[in-house]
Amino acid sequence: MAEHRIFGMSFASIYPLYVTKVERKGRTEEELQKVITWLTGYDEDGLRRVIAEETDLRTFFAQAPAMNPNAHLIKGVICGHRVEEIEDPLMQKIRYLDKLVDELARGKKMESILRA
């Protein structure tokens, strides 16, 4: 089976789309970074580095400093699929991030987004 095209996309190409989405809904880039940090363990410098190096999503998640052990608590539908039922581990991580960004853009409280 052919690999998903999204795996080879750079995080740098997707990040500005996330920023635009959350800012359009009145949220901040700092809040977006907090969500990404919670999920992946990347800090601000790490995010800047992967953006500057145009790291692909496969590598971005493979080299994530510390995927959050509570990521499995992320539930719901994204792109027509339930994130908790996605079988491919990499695709699931990508959709976890998409789901968190959607929740941020929809105005959900940060404590809820971070599964506190």
Rank of each mutant, 00 (worst) to 15 (best):
residue 73 L to Q: 09
residue 105 A to N: 03
residue 68 N to F: 00
residue 97 L to W: 01
residue 35 V to G: 00
residue 65 P to S: 12
residue 80 G to P: 09
residue 111 E to I: 14
residue 111 E to N: 12
residue 15 Y to D: 10
residue 48 R to N: 11
residue 39 L to A: 06
residue 111 E to Q: 07
residue 15 Y to Q: 08
residue 6 I to A: 01
residue 12 A to S: 15
residue 28 T to C: 03
residue 42 Y to I: 12
residue 32 L to K: 02
residue 44 E to V: 13
residue 78 I to P: 02
residue 11 F to M: 13
residue 46 G to N: 08
residue 72 H to S: 12
residue 90 L to P: 01
residue 33 Q to H: 12
residue 37 T to V: 03
residue 11 F to D: 02
residue 70 N to R: 06
residue 96 Y to V: 02
residue 106 R to L: 08
residue 115 R to C: 05
residue 64 A to G: 13
residue 57 L to R: 10
residue 13 S to D: 13
residue 30 E to G: 08
residue 93 K to E: 05
residue 46 G to L: 13
residue 5 R to S: 08
residue 47 L to A: 13
residue 30 E to W: 07
residue 61 F to S: 02
residue 63 Q to N: 15
residue 5 R to L: 07
residue 8 G to W: 02
residue 28 T to N: 04
residue 40 T to K: 08
residue 70 N to I: 00
residue 112 S to R: 11
residue 95 R to E: 02
residue 103 E to S: 09
residue 81 H to A: 15
residue 98 D to H: 14
residue 112 S to P: 04
residue 85 E to A: 14
residue 104 L to Q: 02
residue 41 G to I: 05
residue 91 M to E: 11
residue 3 E to N: 09
residue 6 I to C: 04
residue 21 K to L: 15
residue 116 A to H: 08
residue 33 Q to P: 09
residue 111 E to C: 14
residue 59 T to L: 07
residue 94 I to N: 03
residue 50 V to H: 03
residue 53 E to C: 07
residue 37 T to I: 02
residue 82 R to G: 06
residue 10 S to P: 03
residue 2 A to L: 10
residue 9 M to Q: 15
residue 76 G to L: 01
residue 53 E to K: 15
residue 101 V to F: 07
residue 115 R to G: 01
residue 67 M to D: 06
residue 30 E to Q: 07
residue 70 N to W: 01
residue 93 K to I: 10
residue 97 L to G: 02
residue 60 F to Q: 04
residue 38 W to A: 00
residue 78 I to T: 07
residue 102 D to I: 03
residue 63 Q to T: 14
residue 115 R to T: 05
residue 16 P to H: 03
residue 46 G to V: 13
residue 82 R to Q: 15
residue 71 A to R: 11
residue 50 V to N: 03
residue 26 G to H: 07
residue 85 E to V: 13
residue 11 F to Y: 14
residue 75 K to E: 11
residue 56 D to K: 13
residue 61 F to D: 05
residue 54 E to K: 15
residue 65 P to A: 12
residue 103 E to H: 05
residue 96 Y to S: 01
residue 38 W to F: 07
residue 7 F to C: 02
residue 40 T to N: 11
residue 99 K to E: 01
residue 93 K to L: 11
residue 45 D to A: 14
residue 88 D to H: 14
residue 62 A to F: 15
residue 100 L to S: 06
residue 11 F to E: 11
residue 96 Y to I: 04
residue 62 A to W: 14
residue 41 G to Q: 09
residue 71 A to D: 12
residue 11 F to T: 08
residue 44 E to H: 13
residue 116 A to Y: 04
residue 38 W to D: 00
residue 36 I to T: 01
residue 6 I to E: 06
residue 71 A to L: 13
residue 26 G to V: 13
residue 89 P to Y: 10
residue 39 L to P: 01
residue 17 L to T: 11
residue 105 A to T: 01
residue 73 L to D: 10
residue 20 T to R: 13
residue 92 Q to S: 10
residue 7 F to A: 09
residue 70 N to F: 00
residue 79 C to H: 13
residue 81 H to F: 15
